[in-house]
């Protein structure tokens, strides 16, 4: 105890000095506007850098969640676009139709679990299945292209027959001119499709957009697929053979949207009646 007092007396000047300096600094920071701002600012600078790093680490772990939420957001936006296209087209005589036909399509965002691209018949697996509302026959799209059609569904997974598959045939049309044809894969290039069955009297130019026709139950109309790269008429044929360059690169695609057409059953029924 005595030593402590000795210590105190010995350094009393220093201790008192420190105390009064602290009081003075406290006064400076608290009663002077500019100093207060600078203090707050520079401490923010310091903590700001630390926070930024911590936030960076946190963001890294939150990437998945962020991605998912963005995906849902994108799906909603895309859905709005699709619905808008459908309604603005179909309801040209809107006054005479009931307006309940909006919201025909809903989109289910999903991550791709696995995919093959190097085979003749390529499939991909989605990380969502019947529990998320995916059913056989639904179309799968990305923001700027189509991916394929759901072929089989389990509870949590589903298999998609990609457009890059010899079995795949997708109804498509040339934009603005409305010539209908079928898309098949050329079999080699991952971004090249062949469009068959377009009659040779039609006027086609290189660079024309190819869109989905909307005739099938899988895809909504007017989903962009790609552009015309070149076209030929084979000898003796009545149809063009159009090479279509796809816009979306399926080898780098990780997230897709499954299209749920709410009136699918009804449409399917009436289509099968015709056959």
């Amino acid at each position: 105890m005595r030593n402590i007092f000795n210590l105190f007396f010995r350094y009393s000047a220093f201790i008192v000095f420190v105390i009064f300096e602290i009081i003075a600094l406290y006064l400076i920071v608290n009663y002077n506007k500019s100093q207060k701002e600078i203090w707050a600012h520079s401490s923010n600078l310091f903590t700001g850098t630390i926070n930024k790093y911590v936030q960076g680490v946190e963001d890294f772990f939150a990437l998945q969640a962020t991605n998912d939420s963005l995906l849902i957001e994108n799906a909603n936006l895309l859905q709005t676009i699709i619905d808008y296209r459908v309604t603005s087209k179909d309801n040209a005589f809107q006054d005479y139709e009931d307006k309940d036909s909006t919201n025909n399509y809903t989109l289910i965002p999903s991550r791709i679990c696995s995919k093959t691209l190097n085979l003749r018949n390529n499939y991909l697996t989605l990380c969502k299945g019947s529990s998320s509302g995916i059913e056989v026959g639904m179309g799968v799209i990305t923001f700027n292209g189509i991916v394929g059609i759901v072929k089989s569904v389990s509870k949590n997974y589903s298999t998609v027959l990609m457009v890059l598959n010899s079995e795949s045939r997708i109804s498509a049309k040339v934009a603005t001119k409305n010539y209908i044809g079928n898309l098949v894969w050329s079999g080699s290039d991952l971004r090249e499709l062949n469009m068959m069955d377009v009659p040779k009297h039609s006027e086609i130019a290189v660079g024309d957009s190819i869109l989905t026709s909307g005739y099938s139950i899988s895809f909504p109309p007017e989903i962009f697929i790609g552009v015309v790269e070149s076209y030929t008429i084979e000898g003796g044929s009545n149809n063009y053979n159009i090479k279509v360059q796809m816009k979306s690169d399926l080898s780098t695609t990780d997230y897709v949207y499954v299209v749920n057409f709410l009136q699918a059953e009804e449409k399917e029924e009436i289509l099968s009646e015709n056959e």
Partner: peptide, 23 residues
């Protein structure tokens, strides 16, 4: 030290810079 602090504080009151001269 308290003398210095006190005089500094008086100056501060006139200079509108509470604490600067005191420190």
């Amino acid at each position: 030290i308290p003398i210095g602090f006190a005089i500094g504080l008086i100056v501060d009151l006139f200079y509108d810079s509470l604490g600067v001269h005191a420190a």
